[in-house]
Design a binder for these strands. Structure first.
Lengths: 222, 222
DNA sequence: CTCCAATTTTAAGACAACCTTAAGACTTTT
DNA sequence: AAAAGTCTTAAGGTTGTCTTAAAATTGGAG
């Protein structure tokens, strides 16, 4: 996990770097706004800790500039500017959290971790109603009962579950699950959807895998 | 945007409710932990504001219970427990933010909005009165109730909603929805407009889809 | 290497959902 | 009152999906 710290007070920067490295984060420090913004835009970080008052570009400017390009990257302000107006200005500029100096390192650490948590996209455990799927163990269960699936069945279910509440078109499915990248039409998908529904015993009122006629399928909580 | 407030001090709850409703949020209040948890698990909210000390189940327990099932839902603690240990405990239990009482409403509001931002930025939702249409989920609802639509119905409604407050001529509709690029006259459009109105239960005084005689149709907020 | 079992793919008929058409009722305009 | 445009309904006709079974392929054991 890569953290970028943009902070000009060397004492604070070192203190943070040391503390975060002890927690096994990979830390990069910039002591001015210009470098900070440049690094933020060109390298890949998982989170940014940002001071407000900086030589070069101010924290606010950096924050706004990052948000122009990247709306996902978590940005935490870390600043001595502690009035209500400033707090709001900081949050409005696109930050995800606003921590006022002086702060406890333990709280900063915890607030930092909050933003790593929600990155469930690479989680190995997926859930859909009473259905659980673990990609690592290649294991699927429903109501605590294991459901043995074949390779293709598993891959198809995984794709649907990773895209929960999003439509998977037939083309997307053929591409991702079957790795076929040209015009193709056959009933394979239907056959496997059918066998998934059967094995998972999806009745009328447990319609987790719905068909979107003319388009594809969707996995939905009900 | 639906907000659930779980708070037993009526004064604070009312204050929050009023403030948030002025900002056009839809607010639900629970004055005890048991109801709060139940509502959080059974209804659909976009964010939860949670007191720590509550009659029934404590905020911490609620937070953990929600996280068992839903790792995405933003949870904000809002509490008088302001020590470092408590803050950390709150965040560790799965909360996304931890706001200490007394707080400024403006800051609370801003911190709440932080969590809507990233949803909104990549939203695929269109709104027309109480009607919501999500292209990605191929989902339409009115007053929180799902309205199942067919392909063509969906495409037609999507076109009208994308052009909200703009007239869609019959020719434009036939071109975009039916992909027919030559002179064509038949009642298809009328039939589908009719079935949309029926399924969406658009009465006289909810005339979201209006006829522009001789030209086409228009979707309008009323 | 060969055979067997399990998995994957193809194919086809049955089925259901959807789209289109057309015709008559209704509304608005001239 | 006539004409033009729209609404409503219901009956085919079409298309996409489900289901089943058999053929083809793969992977592992002997």
């Amino acid at each position: 996990m890569n953290i970028l710290i943009v902070e000009d007070e060397i004492g604070i920067a070192n203190f943070l770097q040391q503390g975060l490295e002890e927690e096994d984060f990979i830390v990069t420090v910039c002591d001015n706004g210009t470098d900070g913004l440049h690094k933020a835009l060109t390298e890949k970080f998982d989170i940014i800790l940002l001071d407000w008052m900086l030589p070069g570009i101010s924290g606010i400017e950096i924050c706004k500039a990052i948000r122009e390009v990247n709306s996902e990257l978590p940005i935490l302000f870390l600043t001595a500017k502690d009035t209500l107006q400033e707090t709001i200005e900081g949050l409005k500029s696109g930050a995800n959290d606003y921590i006022k100096k002086p702060f406890h390192f333990a709280e900063l650490l915890e607030r930092t971790k909050v933003h790593f948590r929600r990155d469930a996209s690479n989680s190995t455990e997926l859930k859909l109603g009473s259905i659980l799927l673990d990609t690592e163990r290649h294991f699927v269960s429903k109501n605590q009962k294991e459901i043995p699936l074949t390779q293709k069945e598993f891959a198809l279910l995984e794709m649907l579950m990773r895209n929960k509440d999003k439509i998977c078109t037939r083309t997307e499915i053929i591409e991702q699950v079957w790795d076929i990248h040209f015009e193709y039409n056959t009933g394979v998908i239907d056959v496997f959807i059918n066998s998934l529904r059967k094995k998972l015993e999806l009745s009328e009122n447990e319609n987790y895998i719905q068909t979107i006629r003319g388009i594809g399928y969707i996995a939905k909580e009900i």
